[in-house]
Design a binder for these strands. Structure first.
Length: 582
RNA sequence: GCAUCGAUGGUCUAGAGGCAUGACUUAGGCCUUCCAAGCCUAUAGCCCGGGUUCGAUUCCCGGUCGAUGCACCA
């Protein structure tokens, strides 16, 4: 007894170590600048990892740029301070911290205050908080803190722009702000009408206090974000029909509170029942589900969890996380899909002084009666001098009687005789409104997606009585797409194999030629890096111009004509042909 | 960041205050007509800095990285 279950436990808990070990050994990911001792929170993508990551990013582009028509832009990873003042990151991204003098533990000051029964900590200034928590106990060692200093720890990396450090810059903590500050240009690019979207794939930076968990929490990471600008009153997605009947399990706030598992819904139902805020959010939940399956995430390892009211950012109307289950880390937030409302555009409009609105024309111009009061400034100016400007403004909203207008300027009541202004009643046409769009934001953590892909692809099976390590990557993300082997390194088999390799490369397929060692060893090598197909040139090739195509997962082989190889391999990779149908 | 534990070729590993084991991998060769076979040869290692010592990869101190727990994760 026990042997099988024990084995299962070991296998489960070791997947992380095994997959990371393989990833390092075979060139997927490496510790960064390892010869100087590496740095926590940073990784290098090796040759295979960089290729795989690129493929994941390109599948993302297929969905968002090609599928949705949202063009990609590329903004700097450094932005000046003003951007983050407006976005709220400078203030909101900082935690008030303090250090316990006894155990040297760093603690969140507001948490200490909460633990000590101090109220109003979030609104206190550092000095107030310092005084308030002096009598509180350390959350780690339990001793009374005494007099300690509260300081801000900002998760943004700070730098200076130009010599003399006149301007402070920060490494962006998300790519989103670039799309927001470019709003006016984007609006013009999309010819002034809603909805439209812009996307960006790039690095973001957060100076995490204590990064761990390898690829899961990095200080420099890659995000793929889409910002979709929509009319605030029109959150019905024009192509909602595409996903209306798409069914997937949702873990709503209600289910979480009741401790119930996720329940499958169609997107139509979920919106109609008010579980998902609107069609836009639902549409991108479904699109995300479809995309994650495409890169090889298994449906049973994927769930969509709604943010509870207390974890919802103060500006967000609704937010869902796509969570992928990891053997090591449990449910890991991998994608966030939020309705950010008009929070960001409003903030940047106020801080930058640039209006960030869209002019929405009415179907029919509306006729509105309007009264304009036109003062005779040549007289009023001479008479009232410095007060003239204030009087001009006050008259604009005055309600004049027959004898003149009574206005109040700086507390002083002034009577302006009727002959010093003209009242014009006119009918004007209003053609539309200025509207601040709302933003729907799907935000993807590419590194976490890559880790999930690797972890879920890792498998061991028994082949020829020996353990075979195989990365069951879906063909469209596998870094090497096909391997080409001459059975023997002679008798012209090798030259035929090289010609086939070349024909594949010309077709845009990443093909790896290998003639070293026993054929079985070569298959195993490719299995371990997830190469989905292998072509072998044997002696029969010389007789009838056919080769074998081997499937990584089943290890089965079929024989096909050489001239069909490039086309067949292409369609096997893009998924339009299944190996099992050959 | 605190605490505990750990770190030896690419990987796994033996080891002792004084020549650093072995296996796998990799490379070259022989052999080999489809799934890590065999034989020969070669390449490659004691995490970094300081201390103790005639001598430190080994002992001590500090750091880095990793695992775990706590804290942190807008």
């Amino acid at each position: 007894m026990g042997e099988i279950s024990l084995c299962a436990v070991i296998t489960m808990s070791d997947v992380y170590e095994k997959v990371i070990d393989l990833a390092k050994r075979r060139g997927f990911i490496w510790p960064t600048s390892e010869c100087y001792g590496a740095v926590a929170g940073f990784i290098d993508y090796g040759p295979l990892g960089a290729m795989m990551k690129r493929r994941v990013e390109n599948i993302w582009r297929d969905f968002y740029v090609i599928g949705e028509g949202y063009y990609e832009i590329e903004c700097p990873t450094i932005a000046e301070e003003a951007v983050f003042v407006a976005s709220g990151h400078l203030k909101g991204f900082a935690d008030k911290m303090c250090q316990c003098p006894h155990c040297k533990e760093y603690l969140r000051a507001d948490h200490v205050a909460e633990g000590g029964g101090v109220r109003g900590a979030p609104t206190m200034k550092n000095e107030e908080l310092t005084a308030a928590i002096a009598s509180c106990r350390c959350l780690a060692c339990g001793k009374v803190l005494g007099k300690i200093e509260v300081f801000n720890f900002n998760l943004m990396f700070r730098t200076s722009i130009g010599p003399g450090s006149q301007r402070t810059g920060y490494l962006r903590p998300e790519t989103a702000q670039g799309m927001f500050v470019d709003f006016s240009r984007l609006l013009r690019f999309y010819r002034d009408h809603l909805p439209f979207g812009a996307v960006q794939i790039g690095k973001s930076y957060r100076n995490e206090i204590s990064p761990r968990q390898g690829m899961i929490r990095l200080r420099e990471f890659t995000q793929a974000e889409a910002e979709i600008f929509v009319h605030p009153d029109e959150k019905a997605h024009p192509n909602f029909a595409r996903y209306a009947q798409y069914t997937m399990p949702l873990l709503t706030g209600i289910q979480q509170q009741k401790n119930e598992p996720a329940v499958p819904f169609t997107m139509r139902d979920a919106v109609d029942k008010g579980l998902i805020a609107n069609e836009y959010v639902a549409y991108y939940l479904a699109l995300t589900h479809e995309m994650l399956l495409k890169i090889g995430i298994r449906p049973g390892r994927l769930r969509f969890r709604q943010h509870l009211p207390d974890e919802l950012a103060h500006y967000a109307a609704d937010c869902w996380d796509a969570e992928v289950h990891s053997d090591r880390f449990g449910w890991v937030e991998t994608v966030g899909i939020a309705d950010r409302t008009d929070y960001d555009l409003k903030a940047h409009a106020v801080h930058s002084g640039t209006p960030m609105t869209v002019f929405i024309q009415y179907d029919q111009p509306r006729k509105v009666q309007r009264r304009r009061i036109i003062p005779n400034m040549s007289v009023l100016g001479k008479q009232y001098r410095t007060k003239a400007k204030a009087i001009f403004e006050a008259l604009g909203t005055a309600e004049p009687a027959a004898g003149g207008a009574d206005i109040v300027v700086e507390g002083e009541h002034i009577h302006i005789p009727a002959d010093l202004f003209e009242v014009r009643d006119e009918i004007i046409e209003i053609r539309g409104d200025e509207v601040i769009p709302h933003v729907i934001e799907p935000s993807y953590g590419i590194d976490r997606m890559c880790y999930a892909v690797l972890e879920q692809a890792y498998d061991e099976d028994i082949a020829e009585g020996e353990t075979r390590t195989v990365l069951r990557l879906t063909p469209c993300v596998a870094p090497v797409q096909v391997a080409v082997f001459p059975l023997m390194n002679r008798d012209a088999l090798d030259t035929i194999a090289q010609e086939i390799t070349r024909s594949l490369q010309k077709k845009g397929v990443l093909a790896e030629y290998d003639d070293s060692g026993a054929i079985g060893r070569r298959y195993r090598r490719q299995d371990e890096i997830g190469t989905p197909f292998a072509i072998t040139i044997d002696y029969q090739t010389k007789e009838d111009n056919t080769v074998t195509v081997r499937d990584r997962d089943s290890m089965k082989q079929v024989r096909i004509a050489i001239d069909q190889v490039p086309e067949l391999i292409s369609t096997l990779i893009d998924g339009t042909t299944q190996f099992s149908s050959l």
